[in-house]
Amino acid sequence: MSQAAATSAVSTDPSRRARLAEFWYYFSENRGAVIGLVFFIFLVLLAIFAPLIAPHDPTQQYRDAVLVPPVWQEGGRADFLLGTDAVGRDMLSRLVYGTQFSLFVGVIVTALSLVVGVVFGVIAGYFRGWVDTAIMRVMDIILAFPSLLLALVLVAILGPGLVNAMIAISLVYQPHFVRLARAAVMSEKTRDYVVAAKVAGAGHTRLMFKTILPNCMAPLIVQATLSFSSAILDAAALGFLGMGAQPPTPEWGTMLAEAREFIQSKWWVVTLPGVAILITVLAINLMGDGLRDALDPKLKRS
């Protein structure tokens, strides 16, 4: 997503092109980040082409093939490579479709909390005074609760489901973006270029979002990648507690919750969704590390 934002800027500003090249130079120096990126692209492709890749419909129940083990185990069947679950649905297909949900959660939660958080943060930092106080107090209140507990109660109010889980998670992520945006705006506000723009007669909105904001993006992008991976984890955790996506949705956390009763007997229904969550989050975090190194000049050489 940060890629896209940066690319669109390239054509207009030659100095940005140089910065992008520099960014890519530092990013690609980090081997882990490149691996993460490659894997992430693989997941995105998997999500987009899930209907083509998945061998079966993820909700189709094969009554004659309930809890079939993966193909390499005794009793495994070639048409169900990673086995089947308790009602005979193909694990591989469900895992493949699961990428759609997890990436979707990541994208929506990040976008939602980024946009809303930045708007409030910029307003707070720009106007200060009572607006600032009011916004920051609300953020303090949100931060006073453990995020998962607050999300859990919110979902209980809104009703269990993936969409409501996403809303709840974005809400609890708000304060981080608000604080970052506010701090960045406050430090930029007195810079010469802002004063110059103000003298030239730019309005509040223009000053806030066109002049100041683009210069505060680095920490926000780093925070956004962090939110992306935490959102996937938290959505899965809510699913695990029965408050996220509802069955038969092939969301990984929900699959795990449904499979819990088989922990002693059918390892694949329990282990595989967890592995899927872990490697997806790991890939995004690897990428995030690379992004941070490339964007944050202070840490660049570490």
């Binding site: 308790a86 009763e261 088989f262 002693q264 007997s265 059918k266």
Partner: peptide, 8 residues
């Protein structure tokens, strides 16, 4: 017990 564990 979990139905799945009864056999074991």
């Amino acid at each position: 017990p979990n139905a799945a564990d009864v056999a074991a």
